[in-house]
C-alpha cells in the first residue's frame, strides 16, 4: 500500500544522502518493520512520507498514486503517522488530544459529528486508554502516553499506520501490549509500517523486515532473511550471535561482550 521507489533524500547543507536509493513496501495485512542503527535514515523515511522533506529522486506512492500529488488532508485520512517525539507546549486532556486525530476529516468548517465521536471512542478502547479521557497528557506515564498517541493515530481512521519507535520508554509488558495491538491491526487488514530498535521483538512479530544502513537497504525479507549474524555484525559494528527465541522459535540476537575481563 505504501511504497518507496528508489527514494533519495539529502538534508540541506549535508554532504551525504540521508537516504540513498531506498525501495521498500508496506502491504495491507502485514506488519513491516524498519530497523537499523542510529542515523541509518529510519526517521528520515517517515519525514519524507509526510512531505516534510523533498525527494531528490524517486517517489513515495500510496496505492500507486504519488504521495506528493495527494492533498495533505486526504493523505492523512488514509495514512496515520506517529512521529518519534512529540511534546505539547500546552497540555490537552487525553480526550481532546485523541480528538485531534479527526482533524483531517474536519478542516475549518465541519463540526465533529457522530461518526467522529464513535471513531474516537473505539480507537481509545482499542489502545486501552478509555479510562484516561479526563487526564491531562502531561500527567501520563510514558507507557500511557505512547498508547494515547496510538489512539490518536487510530482515530484518523486510515488503512495504514506508520509509527516511529512506538515502544521507546516502555517496559516489557507495555511493549508487548503495543506489539500485539499492531500485529492484530495488521491481521485485521491494516498496513502497519513500524520503525523500531527492538530487533528481537520485531523478529517475532513482523511479516517483513527492512534493515537500513547509512541510508541504504542492507537486507530485506522475512525475519529469518534479515536476522543473520554476519549482516547484523557489519551493520551494527558489534560482535553478536543470532540464536533462536526459546518461546516461539523466532531468530533472536544476542550481543557479545568485547572486553575479556570484567571492570571491577
Amino acid at each position: 500500500m505504501i511504497r518507496f521507489d528508489h527514494v533519495r533524500v539529502r538534508y540541506p547543507h549535508a554532504f551525504v544522502d540521508a537516504l540513498a536509493d531506498v525501495s521498500l513496501e508496506a502491504e495491507r495485512g502485514a506488519l513491516t518493520a524498519i530497523v537499523g542503527p542510529n542515523g541509518s535514515g529510519k526517521s528520515t523515511l517517515i519525514r519524507a512520507l509526510v512531505g516534510r522533506l523533498p525527494l531528490q529522486q524517486g517517489r513515495i506512492a500510496i496505492d500507486d498514486v504519488a504521495a506528493a500529488s495527494i492533498a495533505p488532508d486526504a493523505l492523512a485520512r488514509r495514512v496515520a503517522v506517529v512521529t518519534q517525539r512529540e511534546d505539547l507546549a500546552f497540555p490537552l486532556l487525553v480526550s481532546e488530544y485523541v480528538a485531534l486525530g479527526r482533524f483531517p476529516h474536519l478542516g475549518i468548517w465541519h463540526a465533529a459529528g457522530e461518526r467522529d465521536r464513535s471513531a474516537i471512542d473505539s480507537s481509545m478502547a482499542a489502545a486501552g486508554v478509555e479510562q484516561l479521557g479526563d487526564r491531562r497528557v502531561d500527567a501520563l506515564s510514558g507507557g500511557e502516553w505512547q498508547r494515547v498517541r496510538l489512539a490518536r493515530a487510530l482515530a484518523q481512521g486510515g488503512e495504514a499506520l506508520v509509527l516511529d519507535e512506538p515502544t521507546a520508554f516502555l517496559d516489557v509488558g507495555h511493549e508487548m501490549g503495543v506489539f500485539e495491538l499492531l500485529h492484530g491491526l495488521a491481521r485485521a487488514g491494516h498496513a502497519v509500517l513500524l520503525v523500531s530498535h527492538h530487533l528481537n521483538l520485531v523478529a517475532r512479530f513482523a511479516d517483513h523486515m527492512v534493515l537500513l544502513h547509512r541510508g541504504a537497504v542492507a537486507a530485506a525479507g522475512t525475519p529469518d532473511d534479515v536476522m543473520r549474524a554476519d549482516t547484523l555484525e557489519r551493520v551494527y559494528e558489534w560482535p553478536l550471535v543470532v540464536t533462536r527465541d526459546p518461546a516461539v522459535g523466532a531468530p533472536a540476537l544476542v550481543p557479545l561482550r568485547t572486553m575479556s575481563k570484567e571492570v571491577s
Binding site: 509526510v50 516534510r52 488532508d73 492523512a76 496515520a80 503517522v81 512521529t83 512529540e86 485531534l100
Partner: peptide, 24 residues
C-alpha cells in the same frame, strides 16, 4: 478563531502536524 483547530494541531509540533494533514 477559524484557524483555531489548525493552531491546536500545530501545537503538537511541526512533524506531527504534517502527519495530521496540516499544511504547516
Amino acid at each position: 478563531v477559524l484557524l483555531g483547530r489548525h493552531i491546536d494541531v500545530l501545537s503538537l509540533g511541526e512533524d506531527a502536524a504534517a502527519g495530521l494533514g496540516l499544511d504547516v
